[in-house]
Simulated scan of single mutants.
Amino acid sequence: MLINCVAYQEGKKLSDVPVEDISEYLKQPDTFVWVALRDPTKDEILTMQEEFALHELAVEDAARGHQRPKMEEYGDNVFMVAQIVELGGDELNVGEVAIFAGPNYVLSVRRDANQGFLGVRARAEREPHQLRKGAGFVLYALVDAVVDRYFPVVDMLESELESIEDHIFGRVGEQRANIERLYALKRKSQVLRHAVIPLLDAIGRLYGGRVPTIVCDTQDYFRDVHDHLFRIAGRLDAIRDTINTAIQVTLSMVAIEENDISKRLASYAAIFAVFTAFAGVWGMNFEFMPELKWKYGYPLALLTMVGVCGYLYRKFKKAGWI
């Protein structure tokens, strides 16, 4: 679906452009065309390929979708893919934006993402001195908007991790729920990491050293984006390490609890074993056993059992087993 198609000249909006007239506007000096598509059909992609003379391999990737974040050069043109990660309740919504950028055009193709880039266009139009830099600045603005959406996700992951840590040493029986929450959080952090790390490498190719022609005037901006991504990657590494540590601590708590239960069971088994031993001895029906003829033999036997068991209970209690 076509969101908008606008021509700009000298950093100012010239007019909305019909799709069939795009190639005509591209011929005008100091003019570039900025087109935004959302979940386009195959025919819409092919139309844009014809109007902008896009490379067939890049078009194939954009049409198929589900690409790994990357940056590719085709002559003077740049093709970039970035994953859009948005908060969507308990789960993360992962979309994608493919950006074609040339000397006089920018085409963005957004898929499976709820939030668009109208704010990016409005911001660029408010800064004609920046928009005058052409496709390089628009490419930066789009990528920067994608990266900015990563920060709320990282904040959410850190907040949820802190909440789980508060319950690690909580009531007995919560360990299973804590481990399930930790693994769910680890999976979410991996989703964001898979979007950040490849994009970090791609952005690193847009500043310093040899860079595509269209971004020569915007290298400082891409270095700033790279710095943001590097900070996010560092925070994700810290989250991953903390999750692994929390899982190990939780499993250790489970092992300690199981050990305590085993000691309690062993202690009570030892105490009742005394009853069994004494009852077994006195339960043998031999004729010539002096204690069988005693008047107080039975009470004495019970008293002996209770006394020995009480002594064992006291010793186990003092040792912390009960």
Rank of each mutant, 00 (worst) to 15 (best):
H167W: 05
I168N: 02
R171N: 07
R171W: 05
R171K: 15
V172N: 08
E174H: 14
Q175V: 02
R176K: 13
I179L: 15
R181V: 02
L182F: 05
L182W: 01
Y183R: 11
A184N: 10
L185A: 04
S189R: 10
Q190R: 14
Q190V: 13
V191G: 09
V191K: 09
H194N: 12
V196M: 11
I197F: 15
I197V: 15
P198Y: 04
L199S: 04
L200W: 11
D201H: 10
A202N: 00
I203V: 13
G204I: 01
R210P: 02
R210N: 02
I214F: 03
C216E: 12
D217Q: 12
F222L: 03
D224I: 13
D227P: 14
I232Y: 06
A233E: 15
G234Y: 08
R235A: 06
L236F: 11
L236N: 06
L236G: 08
L236C: 06
D237S: 09
A238K: 10
R240K: 15
A246Y: 05
I247C: 00
I247M: 06
S252R: 08
V254L: 08
V254T: 05
A255N: 13
E257M: 04
E257R: 12
N259V: 01
D260L: 10
I261G: 07
I261W: 07
S262Y: 10
R264L: 10
L265E: 03
Y268G: 03
Y268N: 02
I271E: 00
A273G: 12
T276K: 05
A279N: 15
G280W: 07
N285T: 04
F286Y: 11
F286W: 12
F288E: 09
F288H: 15
M289E: 08
P290L: 04
P290E: 07
P290Y: 05
L292Q: 02
K293W: 14
K295I: 13
Y296V: 10
P299R: 03
L302I: 15
T304A: 15
